[in-house]
Amino acid sequence: MSNGASRHGSMRAADSDRIQAAQLLTDAAAQGRLGMSEYEERLKKAYAAQTFDELDRLSSDLPGIAPTAPPIGPGQPAPSTLLLAIMSGFERRGRWNVPKRLTSVALFGGGVIDLRYADFTTAEVEIHSYSVFGGQTILLPPELNVDVHGVGVMGAFDHLGDEGSPGAPQVTIRGFSLWGSVGIKRKKRKTQ
């Protein structure tokens, strides 16, 4: 956390503070300072943290971390994004800023949206996925909270029956598939 945060130790942390701590931990994992299992454990604790003290303890042994991407401050979510595959494909993998609203369309094509290594810029994300004679896969890390409202007509739209971690970002997935599919799967991050 920032130096200003440590001065307010017992004060309650906001969603934007938890997201900032998660990005700091992601930077540490990307730099090889945290293994994947320790990273995932600290990430769960960051999303569940209630105070600045709890957030500071998660990164206190990680001095000198230089963020690999400029942080996006509170109230500045990434812009809405459209991923489009018409007789082609799209992939969104690795480190990227997840916008508050993401729309994906696969028409005679396919796509992958991988949220496992992504940086969340807001605590609530809405994904609208549409597949017509195409397919999409949405990969989620174990800690995300997900709510799915999708319909498959002569096709498939996956629904998850489990929950993520308290305090983790909430992802709502809506849409439909017509003679296509929208696959939604939880998948652990790969170990280094």
Rank of each mutant, 00 (worst) to 15 (best):
I173P: 14
A118Y: 07
Q136C: 09
E38M: 09
V151P: 01
T137S: 13
A5Y: 00
R116G: 01
I138F: 08
R101H: 12
A66I: 14
R93P: 01
Y39F: 14
V148R: 07
Y47C: 06
N97A: 15
K187M: 10
A22C: 03
Q23I: 10
L107K: 10
L82H: 08
I127S: 04
D158P: 10
L55K: 03
F120E: 09
R186K: 05
K190G: 06
M1Y: 00
L160N: 09
I86G: 07
A66R: 15
S59A: 03
G152T: 10
L140P: 13
L160K: 12
Q23M: 06
T121C: 06
T81E: 05
R33A: 05
G4L: 13
P77T: 04
S2Q: 04
G175T: 09
L25H: 00
E163C: 11
F108E: 00
L84Q: 04
R57P: 03
D147E: 12
I127M: 06
N97K: 14
G167I: 14
K185H: 09
S165F: 03
D162T: 15
W179P: 05
V146Q: 09
W179Q: 14
R18S: 02
G9T: 12
S129A: 15
R18C: 04
G111W: 01
S181I: 04
L62W: 00
A85M: 02
R57N: 12
F52I: 03
V125W: 06
S131H: 06
T103P: 01
W179G: 15
W96H: 03
E38F: 04
R101Q: 14
I173M: 12
A30G: 02
P142S: 07
F157I: 06
Q136P: 06
P74C: 02
T137F: 11
A85V: 10
V146G: 13
L43F: 01
L107F: 13
H149V: 03
A168F: 10
G161M: 02
H128R: 15
Q170C: 01
D119F: 13
K187P: 08
V105D: 00
A156T: 15
E126Q: 13
D119K: 15
D17S: 07
I19R: 13
Q76I: 13
L84W: 05
E126L: 07
D15I: 04
G183C: 03
V151A: 12
R33N: 02
S181F: 14
V151C: 06
S6I: 12
V98Q: 08
H8N: 09
R12E: 03
G64M: 07
A28W: 00
L160Q: 09
G111I: 01
M36R: 12
R93C: 06
G109P: 13
A106M: 05
P166C: 13
H159D: 06
V151Y: 11
K190I: 04
H8P: 03
